[in-house]
């Protein structure tokens, strides 16, 4: 049986797809057979971030509708063993993602994979609800910014009530917080919500903090999940998050401002 992990946030543009690509790749790098599914029906993007956009033949909805089987639709990553991508459909039919259909695909994947990472679309519409419904675990991607934090809290409410686990009388899944685009400098100057501020408001376990980093855009430009950029701060922060996800202890990195000398403090803004 695979563990199903949903990457969600409510708000768009906070880094769900970047995170899905990074976490899935990180899990596969550690030897876990992992599939990452793009639930954003209509707007396909995970394929671009993973750099396999030209290899898409069939998609998630094709498999649900029986136009193709999973083997045909899954794209095997060329860089990392054990990593497979199931792209989103570009159909405009938002009802294409049926609960039965999604369940069938997840069940079939579960036989063969250790982890299934579900890249949720923004919002709280069908695609987002379907991505979360079957999840065993949730990673809530949040920017240190008011609208993102509020939307994350909304999503935590949905995770607490609208999943299969809850409907079957089980314990609700606990979302874990991944704070992205964090700037330690701005937080220290009081211009940005700090890790502690966001943690206090959302009151969930912290999985990791990804610093605001040029490496993320570079990675998406190139179609390389940012964890593969081992030199970069964001890549290393994602690696730490994957380790913590797997139960290892890792201290937070890239969350302190480098101390300036006396003259630096006097003359530099």
């Amino acid at each position: 049986m695979a563990r199903i992990v949903v990457i969600t946030s409510g708000k768009g543009g906070v880094g769900k797809t970047t995170t899905s690509a990074a976490i899935a790749t990180g899990l596969a790098l550690r030897g876990h057979k992992t599939a990452v599914i793009d639930f954003d029906v209509g707007l396909r993007n995970l394929d671009l971030i993973m750099g396999c956009e030209r290899r898409v033949v069939y998609d998630f909805v094709n498999v649900i509708n029986g136009d193709a089987n999973l083997k045909q639709a899954l794209i095997r990553d060329k860089r990392v063993d054990n990593l497979y991508i199931l792209p989103a459909s570009q159909t405009r039919d938002k009802d294409a993602l049926t609960q039965d259909g999604v369940e069938r695909v997840l069940n079939e994947l579960s036989e063969d994979f250790e982890y299934i990472v579900c890249d949720s679309p923004a919002g709280i519409e069908r695609g987002a609800l379907m991505a979360a419904y079957f999840a065993d675990e949730a990673i809530v991607v949040t920017n240190p910014e008011v609208s993102s934090v509020r939307d994350s809290d909304r999503i935590l409410g949905i995770l607490a009530s609208k999943t299969r686990r809850v409907e079957q009388g089980g314990e609700p899944i606990e979302g874990k917080l991944l704070l992205t685009r964090y700037s330690a400098e701005r937080a220290e100057r009081g211009e940005m919500l700090s890790i502690e501020d966001v943690g206090e408001i959302l009151a969930i376990e912290l999985l990791g903090v990804i610093p605001e980093s040029q490496a993320v855009l570079n990675a998406s430009n190139a179609g390389q999940p940012v964890v593969l950029d081992e030199e970069s701060d964001a890549g290393q922060a994602y690696q730490d998050a994957v380790d913590r996800f797997l139960g290892e202890e890792r201290p937070l990195r890239f969350v302190d401002v480098p101390k300036k000398g006396f003259f630096g403090r006097l003359f530099k803004g």
């Binding site: 910014e145 008011v146 934090v149 509020r150 809290d153 909304r154 409410g157 937080a187 100057r189 009081g190 211009e191 940005m192 919500l193 700090s194 501020d197 206090e200 408001i201 403090r265 006097l266 003359f267 530099k268 803004g269």
Partner: peptide, 30 residues
Amino acid sequence: MGIFDYFRQPRQKSASVAKERLQIIVARER
């Protein structure tokens, strides 16, 4: 912080405004 900032009036930082607003709205929505 430059040398002249030391003489400026301290004002409430935007992050603490953000935190207060969030605490209120999140509590209400919960």
